[in-house]
Amino acid sequence: METALTLNHFLFVSGVLFAIGLAGVLVRRNLIIIFMCLELMLAAANLTLVAFSRFNVQDGQPNYDGQVLLFFIITVAAAEVAVGLAIIVALFRTKETTDVTKVNSMKY
């Protein structure tokens, strides 16, 4: 009954999580939640990297290159969140809203 885990299991979970994040970006109106869904998509892609790293065993060790890349992705994601949230705060100061449908002009 116990089936062994394959690479497909992990890639499928990663793909579905990415799709959920995509749905959130398309459906939601709140800018903050859209941003959270973007983070979700990024994290889903991380799972793919770790899975490929673990399944590509050389000399009995996982391929650590994938995990190093993931380290960089996490760093960039942290920087991106900081800047993105600062932009959202600046937007809220001028428009008093975080609803994307009400933010439809650049300056006025």
Binding site: A4, L5, T6, L7, N8, L11, F12, G15, V16, F18, A19, I20, L22, A23, L26, V27, R54, F55, V57, D59, G60, Q61, P62
Partner: peptide
């Protein structure tokens, strides 16, 4: 949005079911 999302999941499933790479089980570590 639902169409795009379901389409994406269908794409993932079809790609995964065709590849041989994905059928590998977890290799043992020394």
């Amino acid at each position: 949005a639902g169409g795009v999302t379901l389409g994406f999941i269908a794409l993932v499933i079809s790609v995964l079911s065709r590849s041989d790479v994905g059928k590998a089980t977890i290799p043992a570590l020394t």
